[in-house]
């Protein structure tokens, strides 16, 4: 194979700027989507563990709906279909005036989809706590809200830090699908560099390394969180 390697191209103007801009979009879309996923997923996950049938039913419907439709399909639904389904005025605003329509759709899509997965982790975490803990909380006069606030949620979330780390990583990786609706994130920029320069190997190597670095940083951060949240002598012990 005859190929003119030119790693320098990545640092030339304007390609270097494109990559930096791609990183910014990837980080922004993923971070905001994660905030949505974590908050919404927590609410849905807790709802699936409470006594109320209604809350449990709604939570289950949410999870099954969002996690069983391919993410790419959801990406298209949010961008092309949702504006047509909502009331006309809102739809017109989404198509014409909404700031950053592609990124906003991508954020909503990733956030709501990942929320369904976070919800399952949260539910599993809470359900793994022995039932006697809840009984002990009630027996001392705590209300249901207090039992969740002080007992089930703090312990349940500590248990699920490792699987939550995976979800957090996945949201960065899944954000690459946003290129299909035109968000200029890392992969989008890599393709663009290839189109302009025909230096595809360099461009996609750069994208690969960027994803690796970002996800490794997430792994480090979550490892720190896990350390800090560890309950002495509880669960799996690790050598410090």
């Amino acid at each position: 194979m005859k190929y003119n390697w030119n790693w320098g191209i990545l640092f030339e103007d304007p390609y270097f700027g494109w990559l930096i801009s791609g990183i910014q979009w990837t980080l922004m879309v993923s971070a905001i989507a994660w905030i949505i996923a974590f908050s919404l997923g927590s609410i849905v996950g807790v709802a699936r563990t409470v006594d109320s049938r209604w809350a449990r039913g709604l939570g289950t419907a949410y999870v099954e709906g969002f996690r069983n439709v391919p993410l790419l399909v959801q990406m298209f639904l949010w961008f092309y279909v949702v504006p047509e389904l909502v009331p006309e005025d809102l739809g017109r605003w989404m198509k014409r005036d909404m700031p950053f329509p592609e990124a906003t759709s991508a954020i909503l899509c990733l956030g709501t989809y990942t929320a369904s997965r976070v919800a399952e982790q949260v539910r599993a975490g809470i359900e793994s706590i022995p039932r006697g803990q809840k009984a002990a909380g009630y027996a001392m006069g705590l209300t249901t809200f207090q039992v969740y606030r002080h007992l089930l949620v703090p312990v349940g979330y500590r248990i699920i830090v490792p699987p939550l780390t995976s979800e957090f990583l996945t949201i960065f990786k899944n954000s690459s699908l946003a290129l299909t609706i035109g968000v200029a994130e890392v992969l989008f920029q890599a393709r663009q560099i290839e189109n302009y320069t025909f230096q595809g190997f360099e461009a996609f190597t750069a994208a690969t390394l960027i994803y690796l670095v970002v996800t490794m940083i997430v792994v480090l951060i979550m490892g720190y969180v896990e350390q800090r949240a560890r309950i002495p002598g509880y669960g799996v012990q690790r050598e410090p």
Partner: peptide, 21 residues
């Protein structure tokens, strides 16, 4: 008001049920 009533009755369980965190 069950929480209020329960707060006046102490209970000790077979498996202690101390809160691990």
């Amino acid at each position: 008001n069950l929480p209020k009533l329960r707060s006046q009755i102490g209970m000790v369980f077979q498996n202690f049920e101390l809160f691990p965190h």
